[in-house]
Amino acid sequence: MENNHIEVIAIDHGWANMKTVSQIFTSGVKEITTEPALFDNVLEYDNKYYKIGGKRLEVKKTKVEDENYYLLTLAAVAKELEISTRLMVIYYFMVLMYMNQIPMQK
């Protein structure tokens, strides 16, 4: 059986903040030159590490002059998928708990 589940992730690419349905974070991205000890708000892309959030980016003519907003988009998608996965695990756990409380009929 194929899983044709499609998930739409809306992202508002603001100059000050990135916004999704469940997340708001500062439009800031900075390359980290060494592997970080903690990976909270860190994006790994193309064998490089980027700190997401923190000091916001400088306003430019467009958001496509460099790869900063592409990296912020990847981070926003990752944050939403992480939330979605957590919610799915909680949902399945609740269904299992509910099913175990109902006596099986013969």
Rank of each mutant, 00 (worst) to 15 (best):
T34F: 00
E35R: 09
E35P: 00
E35I: 00
P36N: 12
A37V: 04
L38D: 15
L38S: 14
L38Q: 11
L38W: 03
F39G: 02
D40Y: 10
N41G: 05
N41W: 05
V42A: 09
V42N: 01
V42T: 12
V42H: 13
E44V: 03
Y45E: 14
N47G: 01
N47W: 03
N47P: 00
N47Q: 15
Y49A: 00
Y50I: 01
K51W: 06
I52S: 06
G53T: 07
G54M: 05
K55F: 03
K55R: 14
K55T: 13
K55W: 01
K55Q: 13
R56D: 07
R56I: 12
E58N: 08
V59P: 03
K60F: 09
K61V: 07
K61I: 06
K61E: 15
T62S: 15
T62F: 12
K63V: 04
K63A: 06
K63F: 12
V64W: 08
V64C: 11
E65M: 11
D66V: 13
E67T: 08
N68C: 15
N68D: 15
N68L: 01
N68E: 13
Y69K: 01
Y69V: 02
Y69A: 01
Y70F: 15
Y70V: 09
L71N: 11
L71V: 06
L72G: 02
T73W: 04
T73E: 09
L74D: 04
A75Q: 08
A76N: 05
V77Y: 05
A78V: 03
K79F: 14
K79A: 14
E80C: 01
E80M: 06
L81G: 03
E82Q: 15
I83A: 02
I83C: 04
I83Y: 10
I83L: 10
S84A: 13
S84M: 13
S84H: 11
T85L: 10
T85I: 07
R86F: 05
L87W: 06
L87V: 02
